[in-house]
Design a protein around this nucleic acid. Structure first.
Lengths: 109, 109
DNA sequence: CAAGTATATGATTGCTTGCGCATATACAAC
DNA sequence: GTTGTATATGCGCAAGCAATCATATACTTG
């Protein structure tokens, strides 16, 4: 598209909140741990090295933002990545950062 | 790729900071105002409706994150989008939000 | 029912950050 | 030099949020 869409303040607020959800290392660790399939909370606690309470809180944040989905099975709750754009977003940012960093390294010589 | 890359804590910290830069409505307004080409600070103040001081601060944040670039011309400073992945990121998020919202609307009936 | 396990949540604390005001810097014109 | 304009920045305040501790809820087993 040539002409870019203009978003309202409310829309930009939503976009900002979306980015804010992804702006915490612990939440990115959780997302990363779920790249290869669903895990329950205990597995995520072990994979990320966080406390159970903290992991649970971040999972709630991610779930209410529709980034993750929940599945209860008895005592356990399994989480999975519900939004397919999440991996794409992470890859875009990682690629951009790698480029930026390699430029900085190259500029040292 | 089948196997996903595992990022270190430091790398995830960088990714998180990247997302955090995009997690403010005013900064998104500035980025949006620059979609169709560079503008100086005064033009950005008018386009976003913010104060000069606040706009200047956010421009500094965006510039030091290498999201925007600066060009001085006499008294004025012109800013432009320096990272080509930024529009892609915004489009991805906006598309995802539109889908999510339309599902919520549909679930009301 | 009681006991045990998995997960969620209330309350508190400390840190970060966006905003507004005033002022400082940088540059141009005269 | 002085004055005026464009942009940046130091400071203080208030709001938001992540981390921790303790406790609560939900479910299973016996």
């Amino acid at each position: 598209m040539i002409r870019h869409a203009q978003y309202s303040n409310d829309a930009l607020e939503l976009v900002a909140r979306r980015f804010a959800v992804l702006a915490e290392p612990m939440r990115l660790r959780l997302i990363q741990a779920l790249f290869d399939g669903e895990k329950n909370v205990s597995e995520l606690v072990e994979a990320t090295g966080g406390t159970q309470a903290n992991v649970s809180r971040h999972l709630q944040t991610l779930t209410s933002a529709h980034v993750l989905g929940r599945r209860k099975a008895g005592l356990q709750v399994f989480y999975h990545i519900a939004d397919p754009t999440i991996p794409k977003l992470c890859n875009l940012v990682c690629g951009s950062l790698e480029k930026s960093l390699s430029r900085q390294v190259a500029s040292l010589s």
